[in-house]
Amino acid sequence: MVNPLAWQLAELRAIRDETPETKSFTFDLPSWMPHLAGQHYDIRLTADDGYEAERSYSVASPPERIGEIELTVERIDDGEVSPFLHDVARVGDRIELRGPIGGYFVWRASEGGPLLLVAGGSGIVPLMAMLRHRNAAGSTVPTVLVYSSRTRELMIYADELDDLVAGGDGLTVVQTLTRSQPPGWSGYTRRIDRDLLAEVLPRVGEHARAYVCGPTLLVEAAADALVGLGLVSSQVRTERFGPTGR
């Protein structure tokens, strides 16, 4: 039985560019255990003088992907760990990880739906794990993802989300691009607010299980709005990533 408290030495197997600001890192874990979609791992970096930095990153891959995990990380300019991962880490490096961690902001396909997923920026990562798990588990529960990004280029997993929607298994993705939009854009262009959520909610109804993740202000505005629209507060699960989304 793996102890999620224990640090393990993971090997970085692959690095993939997702957007100009985010990369996905695949780690091979000596003691992998199936996680729940929504959980995260902690990464610890240690310099030779003993200086340590530790950060948490949501797992992007579903538990069905056995033996390895993928973390999608946004590069924060004055961060300590994300610049290291983006600028210094290379395939073959060994990095200390521990997990999986979390039990509140998680979803198992066996719990059913409908699902309302609300993401801002890199808050999409744990929700993507949920969507990938939903897909791998063959779930068809009605699901709406409301996803706010600044631009289409900064939207993570854009192609994969298009593919999931095209699969026709009950997933709808509603995008809002808040800073600039491609020519011909007919979707939302404003921050997620109560009116936007009110327009989307009928697709899943007020008995939906909601998961909201991203910058703190977005999460609080969306969660408050959903409760105001009739969702029971215990059905609205939140994870705040700080000002920029971690």
């Binding site: 999620p4 948490s56 997990g99 961690i101 902001f105 703190t216 994870e239 705040r240 700080g242 000002p243």
Partner: peptide, 15 residues
């Protein structure tokens, strides 16, 4: 308010 996180952020330490 934007800088403030929630208990999820310290899940590892709580563990």
């Amino acid at each position: 308010r934007a800088l403030i996180l929630d208990g999820n952020a310290v899940a590892g330490m709580l563990l």
